[in-house]
Write a protein that binds this DNA or RNA. Structure first.
Lengths: 248, 248
DNA sequence: ACTGTAGGTGTACGCTGTATACATGTCAAG
DNA sequence: CTTGACATGTATACAGCGTACACCTACAGT
């Protein structure tokens, strides 16, 4: 009997879970492969049987957080919870749904402080993250926002609220995602179709919003957000706003 | 004649400058002490005569960027450019001044991509960063914003536009700053007074804004920003906004 | 019973930041 | 002019990192 077998078998899931726990305790930088192995009472190299490398592990850790924000994203089959969000009655204002969703995301990230650092260094959006963003866009589309506005809103929210700075649209990872969710070796067309099936709102936005298809103007996006904020400050200045008498 | 002397003497400045250049080329993570030493044609340990350690070097690198955003902050003597910003004629709308300033900051950061990663991992605000923030607050105070609103606005802007998540007010670093700018060993009162002299707007905000003296409610700050954005989206939805016909 | 494979171990390499001890060139005091 | 302190660069070394590679070993399927 090996040390590992006494503690139960390792899986990608269990390794990821242990990594999250360790990072919670000691921070992301101190979450080393060796320390993680030690926590699992296992040799460092054992981890690599379940995880490609440290960077990919951090990807998995973050995915885990995203799933915690929106558990229905765990489904590998996209057809189950098709256009997500327990938005059951359409009675709720889209703004409330969106706010609730983002505050929940924030709460999750706040309880895992390493996630802020992690998000900044991720370069590609994983399928899970794409699904999460698709869900956010779904909320806005159902609220009646144009693709153009959804596009800008996503940039504003993601760059600011999440720290995502990078592109959302079909990346290598997106094709991978499609390939995974689909069958084996599929044609590129089929991969794209699968992508569209999994992330309908992302595709809708990309197809409809001006400039979203090519690469979008990052400076314009930034200015969009900045003007919103500055205008809001001015408006509150004029109306004698005070935090103690905050409205709703 | 050593290899170093052929290339001119090392200084903290020259090391920092070389570090910035190297990070621009290869990224922050790949900017290792050894590579930096090699670029300077010097032994790795030579760097430590001019820089405490790698983390402090990154602090210096970032300070350098901040000074590039606002060159007058380079003055070690705060009395020279007292309440900063070439705001000469008070004719300009504070919003334009602020926007211009932030866009300049962004331009600087965009041309040094490592700065985004760097900013996230900094834990304390350096005197230079404090001075920069003080300047930003000065713009808002002169625009007529209340301390309360300045406080919220700074949180909104700094968390979102910069990524600052941490406290602004008297930190260990602040006391250091005061001690440096002052004389030798001074009393804590004197240090505080020096701080107030160097960063008048920060102190004004801290003394006046409700809750700013203690620790402020991070969740409330976040909600403040979030509501601004969501409300702005709704407003644009209702008015049929489109990015192609952007107003100013 | 045989064998392939999945999942562990052990060892080793190149890299990192940096502590410590040492050399040397410069400049001030005697 | 000598002397010695000091500032600055060097040399060596260590602990820790991610991970490639070779190996073992227990179980699954034929």
């Amino acid at each position: 009997m090996t040390a590992a077998s006494s503690r139960g078998a390792l899986t990608t899931q269990s390794v990821t879970a242990a990594a999250v726990e360790l990072a919670d305790d000691v921070g992301l930088e101190a979450m080393t492969m060796r320390r993680l192995a030690q926590a699992l009472e296992v040799t460092p190299m054992a981890l690599y049987k379940h995880v490609d490398n440290r960077e990919k592990l951090i990807d998995l850790m973050f995915d885990r957080l995203v799933i915690q924000m929106a558990p229905e994203l765990a489904e590998p089959d996209p057809s189950s919870a098709l256009s997500g969000v327990s938005d059951a009655g359409s009675s709720a204002d889209w703004r409330d749904v969106l706010r609730e969703q983002i505050l929940a995301a924030r709460a999750t990230m706040m309880s895992h402080p390493w996630s802020f650092e992690a998000i900044q260094t991720r370069t590609l959006a994983s399928p899970v993250v794409l699904a999460y963003m698709d869900r956010l866009m779904g909320i806005m589309f159902r609220g009646g926002l144009s693709a153009d506005l959804v596009h800008h809103a996503m940039h504003t929210l993601s760059t600011r609220m999440w720290g995502f700075t990078h592109d959302v649209l079909p990346t290598p990872s997106a094709s991978e995602a499609a390939a995974e969710s689909g069958g084996e070796l599929v044609s590129e067309d089929a991969a794209l179709a699968s992508f569209a099936a999994s992330f309908p709102h992302i595709v809708r936005m990309a197809m409809t919003a001006p400039g979203a298809a090519g690469q979008c103007d990052a400076d314009a996006e930034f200015g969009f957000a900045l003007d919103i904020l500055i205008d809001a400050f001015e408006q509150r200045r004029l109306s004698g706003w005070s935090s103690t008498s905050a409205h709703s």
